[in-house]
Structure formats: C-alpha cells, structure tokens
Computed example of a mutant assay.
Amino acid sequence: MNIVAIIPARGGSKGLKRKNVLPLNGKPLIAYSIEAALNLGDVSRVIVSTDDEEIAEIAKQWGAEVPFLRPEYLASDTATTIDVLKHTIHFLKENEDFETDHVLLLQPTSPLRTEQHAREALDLYLNAGCPVVSVSLADTHPFLMRVKKEDYLIPFMELPDHKATRRQDLPEVYELNGAIYLTDYHHLMIENAIYTDKVIPYVMDKRSSVDIDDEIDFKLAEVLLIDGAV
C-alpha cells in the first residue's frame, strides 16, 4: 500500500506574496508541512508540486521530492487542487511506474498542523476506510448569519427551533480548515473528488487550524509558534 503525501505550493500568491517560502520562526513556511509528512512512517513519498524554481529548491533542501515543475496550466488561479493531485498521480505512474493507492494532502499554509495531527488523521483514515478531512468549529454559526433582502436583514438559515437563540443551544457546526485531506485513488481518479457521500472529520482546535492567507494570518502564526502554543 503506497501512501503519497502531496504538498501543493504555487509560486504566485495574491494575499501574501511568496508566502510559501517566507521565513516563519526561523524556517520557510513550506518546511513545516514537509517535516510533518516526513515524520510519518506510513508515507512512501513526500512530493511538492510547484511551478516555482525557488520553492522547488527549498523543498528539496528540507527533504521533499520535486520530480517535476508543474505545467503552466496548473499554475493559474483557476487550477483546482484536484487537477494538481491528479497530475501528480499521472506523472508518477507514467514516468516512474509508481502506483499511488492513497493521498495525504497537506496545504503548506497550515504550519501549526503538526506531525501528531497528521498521524492521528492518518490512523483515523486507515481504520475508517473512507476519506478524512480536518475541520474546526465554525467561528460563526450559520443560524446566526443574516443576508440583506430589499434593505432588510433576514436569516441566512431558518432555526430548526425558534427558541434556540443562544449559541450554546445550537448544534455544533464545523468548517474545513484546509490542513489535512486523506483520500484514495478511486475518489481522485474515478470520482474526480477528494470525497463524495461519506467523509469522516478529524477535528482540530482553532489555534492549530490557522490558515495563512494574508499578513495578519502570518503574524498570528508567528506569535503562536514563538509562544510555544502548539
């Protein structure tokens, strides 16, 4: 059984330029995900998919494989993560005759996701027999959200029980935090999806779920790492 860890790292980023290689608490951002993957004994290979020479070089320095530079059509804003994963699997099969059974997707923008998180999610996946995605409790409950209609605010979603107006009375809801995705060959290559009807959540705390999109996120992650919070 081959489990391949894939870390997608495009060179162009609009929210925070060159974020994947920016130094965060002494090492480039992408290094955190590479280290987390390398420390998992079940993972056969750790591959960074990038279109950028600098990212490729740094990824290699930190122990990841970069067997190709991503083609231009997969380096645009419109390229999907599914396309990037499928391209990697195709490349390994066509160029190295390497069969990929399972994929661990680690986004480089989640530096507070640790080896322990990845280990627990992988164990959950191997025991469950279906895709696993990492989530955290949603900051804002959808039943408390409002939309504007004809100058007035109306509920985004109707409460199942109109008496439930306090957050603690509402059902827990989760949001994808982008840190960990685990899936198999069939879902990716046949279903063209990471998951379909059945997926199991791996719940992470809010602090570990920081996803770096802009400078504020980067500063927050820096503070948490310096404080030894994770």
Rank of each mutant, 00 (worst) to 15 (best):
A5W: 00
G11A: 10
S13H: 13
K14T: 13
K17W: 09
P23F: 06
N25C: 15
N25L: 04
K27S: 05
A31R: 01
Y32I: 05
Y32V: 04
I34P: 03
E35D: 13
A36Q: 01
L40H: 08
L40C: 10
R45Y: 08
E53P: 15
E54M: 08
I55Y: 06
A56V: 11
I58K: 05
E65S: 07
V66T: 10
F68E: 08
P71I: 09
E72D: 15
E72H: 09
L74T: 04
T81C: 09
I82H: 13
I82G: 05
L85T: 05
H87I: 08
H90P: 01
H90T: 05
L112P: 01
Q116C: 02
D123F: 03
L124H: 03
Y125Q: 00
Y125I: 01
L126F: 06
A128R: 04
V133C: 12
S134E: 02
A138E: 00
F143A: 10
L144K: 10
L144D: 13
M145C: 15
K149F: 06
L153P: 00
R167I: 12
E172H: 12
Y174W: 09
A179M: 09
D184T: 11
Y185K: 14
L188S: 02
L188W: 02
E191I: 03
E191C: 08
T196R: 14
P201C: 00
R207D: 08
S208T: 07
S209V: 02
I216K: 15
I216Y: 13
F218D: 02
L220V: 14
G228A: 11
A229E: 14
